[in-house]
């Protein structure tokens, strides 16, 4: 039996790589274009596995509106293809219309331009310096200069409104005492600071923090607030977000004013079904430092 026989052995198929078997395929068929300009091209070919594949390509042929062409240009339209274009098949897709709508983008206002280009420009530089919006010091409120932990004014600044558990008295007194040119003394250790209370408050805040895990990706901070509010006053709600994707990472923290409220919330909500997921609510372990 030769290779030309209709029934082929797989070994021969592999050797020939399908190239020389094209004569076995039915001829290419072109249907249309019909009155709607729909043209159908039916082709057959062998795929990598040597199976016969029928490829139907439907093309809508449209006339370009009022294109005025010269006589010679119309004649050139009917020129036969040459070079590599002769063997071009329908599936080659050399010419495609962009799926994306491209607009002539107006330039940005001169003022906004440098910032925009900087933000979009060099991701490395952005990492180093921090995005203008991301890096906001919670102590002094300065944007894009330093992180809260590195704030040079952290012992000078007024406590921010959001931290109601910080003792205002301790902070203000420390300003007065911290102006001397001596070695650094933490505000809480300075003379006049309500030492016990300050340390206690801080501890208690950490302890009143409840960790919520197995959150659904759709859960936002307001949702969490709504969920925990019935148990008592809440000072902070935080849902961890992936910086890159902006999606929730599936866990968050809720800080209660009162420890008892927090305990009740844990008792009630641990194992609670929320948004098709079973929540795990527990005391947040304080950070190692």
């Amino acid at each position: 039996m030769t290779a030309t026989a209709p029934k082929l052995r797989w070994g021969e198929l592999e050797e020939d790589d399908g190239e020389d078997l094209d004569f076995l395929l039915p001829p290419r068929q072109v249907i249309g274009p019909n009155e709607n300009g729909i043209k159908k091209v039916i082709e057959y070919k062998f795929n990598e596995d040597g199976n016969k594949v029928k490829i139907t390509t439907t093309i809508r042929v449209r006339k370009l509106a009022n294109a005025r062409l010269s006589k010679s240009a119309i004649e050139r339209r009917s020129w036969p293809k040459f070079g590599d274009a002769v063997h071009e098949d329908v599936g080659s897709r050399l010419t495609m219309v962009s799926t994306e709508e491209i607009v002539l983008e107006p330039p940005r206002a001169p003022g906004s331009k440098p910032e925009e280009t900087k933000a979009a420009g060099d991701p490395l530089a952005q990492l180093g310096k921090g995005g203008a919006v991301l890096m906001v010091c919670r102590t002094c409120g300065k944007k894009g200069d330093h992180w809260t932990s590195r704030c040079p004014y952290k012992d000078l600044a007024q406590p921010s409104e959001g931290f109601i558990d910080k003792p205002p008295t301790a902070e203000t007194s420390s300003v007065a005492s911290g102006t001397g040119k001596t070695a650094y003394v933490p505000p809480g250790m300075r003379a006049g600071a309500e030492r016990g209370a300050g340390a206690d408050m801080r501890r208690r805040n950490d302890e009143n923090s409840v960790r919520v895990t197995n959150l659904s990706e759709d859960t936002q901070e307001p949702d969490l607030h709504d969920l925990f509010r019935p148990f008592g006053a809440i000072t902070r709600v935080y849902v961890a977000m992936d910086q890159k994707t902006g999606m929730s990472r599936g866990f968050g923290f809720v800080n209660f004013v009162n420890r008892e409220d927090a305990q009740r919330a844990i008792n009630k909500l641990n194992g609670y079904g929320y948004d098709n997921l079973i929540l795990k609510v527990e005391w947040a372990t304080p950070r190692s430092n």
Binding site: A67, R76, G83, D84, A85, E88, L94, T95
Partner: peptide, 15 residues
């Protein structure tokens, strides 16, 4: 390569 400038169809290549 030469293309039709209205629809981008390839007319031919100069080899």
């Amino acid at each position: 390569t030469v293309w039709f400038a209205d629809n981008g169809e390839r007319l031919g290549t100069f080899r």
